[in-house]
Design a binder for these strands. Structure first.
Length: 235
DNA sequence: CCAGACGTTGTT
DNA sequence: GTCTGG
DNA sequence: CCAGACGTTGTT
DNA sequence: GTCTGG
């Protein structure tokens, strides 16, 4: 699965990598230890009302989806992942699966392998440390505790899709994030693709990612630790 | 009809 | 919001 | 995901 | 043990 990840490139590099036309909101610092509920960068497309090309934008969102009906923020930390097998049907996700798909730019993610001796953290990353595109969903949640004219009323939230882990990754953990190949990002973000069958078709076409595991130190456990040394191989 | 859930992971 | 369970 | 808290009363 | 916060 994916409960902690790394997105260490700056806004400028991500804009180039993901063909982002506009940046909405303030730049976000790179992070080597993103935890649920924190702000992350997402890439999405805003449909052009006149049938023209959609505008691809990058903005910030909180990690942990809040469906429109959530009464408060507490649900978010349990909706950090959505199973790709059922995402088009589950009440919490299906509206977003049809109309609010996004990508979460990443470099890799952390996974804790359960062993007899305890939990062992790994960092899983792309070959050649290439950038990854996690398939995600987002929502705009109206905070009932904030007045109707306050811009803080609208909270953008997001979640990462998961899938069964491939055999090699399965030795560490049985679920993995859905990683989109570069040439599938456009399909995933297309706001015109709203049919459940089309969304399923795209997901079913995502190939198994080739990710490289690296054992890392225990410091990654605390979200307060956040620097490049977290990625270093442990002995 | 209204009330209550709506999710994932992991562990048992 | 929408579905399920009572 | 892991880490860290987990409570009340009353007073400032 | 279980929930909340990051």
């Amino acid at each position: 699965m994916c409960g902690r990840y790394v997105s260490a490139r700056n806004d400028h590099e991500l804009r180039l990598l993901f063909d982002v036309e506009r940046r909405v909101g303030e730049a976000l610092a790179p992070s080597y230890n993103i935890a649920p509920t924190q702000h992350v960068r997402i890439v999405r497309e805003e449909a052009d009302g006149d049938g023209g090309a959609a505008v691809r934008e990058m903005r910030n969102a909180r990690w942990g989806l809040l469906p429109v009906w959530a009464k408060d923020r507490r649900m978010a930390s349990r909706l950090i992942n959505a199973r790709s097998e059922t995402v088009t049907d589950k009440p919490a996700f299906r509206a977003a699966a049809a109309r609010r798909r996004c990508v979460l730019p990443a470099d890799g993610y952390y996974e804790w392998q359960k062993t007899a001796g305890g939990k062992v953290p790994y960092y899983l990353h792309g070959p050649e440390e290439e950038a990854l595109a996690f398939a995600g969903l987002y929502e705009r949640w109206a905070d009932p505790g904030v007045g109707g004219d306050d811009p803080d009323r609208w909270v953008w939230t997001c979640t990462v899709l998961t899938r069964p882990a491939s055999d090699s990754l399965g030795r560490i953990h049985d679920r993995a994030p859905v990683v989109l190949p570069v040439d599938m990002v456009g399909d995933w973000l297309d706001p015109e693709a709203t049919a459940k069958e089309r969304v399923r078709e795209i997901l079913d076409a995502v190939p198994e990612p080739h990710l490289v595991p690296r054992r890392v130190g225990g410091a990654v456990g605390s979200p307060r630790n956040n620097d490049p040394s977290l990625l270093a191989e442990a002995d």
